[in-house]
Amino acid sequence: MPEETLNDLNRRLDAALLDDGRFYADTTVYGGRVALRPAIVNWRTTEADIDLLMDVVRKLIPTLTG
């Protein structure tokens, strides 16, 4: 996928995560690429929390790509 298309998808995914409400994430630009930057700073964050984040992302992406 072209880089600008991927950047746009990551921005829309970030907005969808915020709308979903289960996770807070933001985006960052590194090397000209937009990437998700979830806030994982609580010492009680577990592997299960990260797995759930990935599950939510996997469910949201198809809604953004049509």
Rank of each mutant, 00 (worst) to 15 (best):
G31D: 14
R12P: 01
L13G: 00
D20N: 13
T65K: 00
R37W: 06
G21C: 02
D55R: 12
R58A: 14
Y24V: 04
V34C: 09
N7F: 00
A25G: 08
A15M: 07
A35F: 13
E47G: 12
R33G: 01
L53A: 02
D14V: 08
L52Y: 12
N10R: 12
A15P: 01
A48Q: 12
G21I: 08
E4C: 05
D20S: 05
Y30N: 15
G66H: 11
V56L: 00
N7W: 09
D51R: 07
R33A: 06
L17T: 02
L18S: 10
I40Q: 13
A48W: 00
A16M: 09
R22Y: 08
G66K: 14
E3L: 11
L52Q: 14
I61F: 07
I61S: 02
V41F: 12
T45W: 04
N7Q: 02
E3G: 08
P62I: 00
Y30M: 13
P2A: 15
E4G: 05
P62D: 12
D51A: 05
L36Q: 03
P38E: 01
L13W: 01
T28H: 08
A25I: 07
V29H: 05
D51V: 10
D49Y: 08
T65H: 05
E4P: 07
D26F: 12
R22C: 07
D8T: 12
R33N: 07
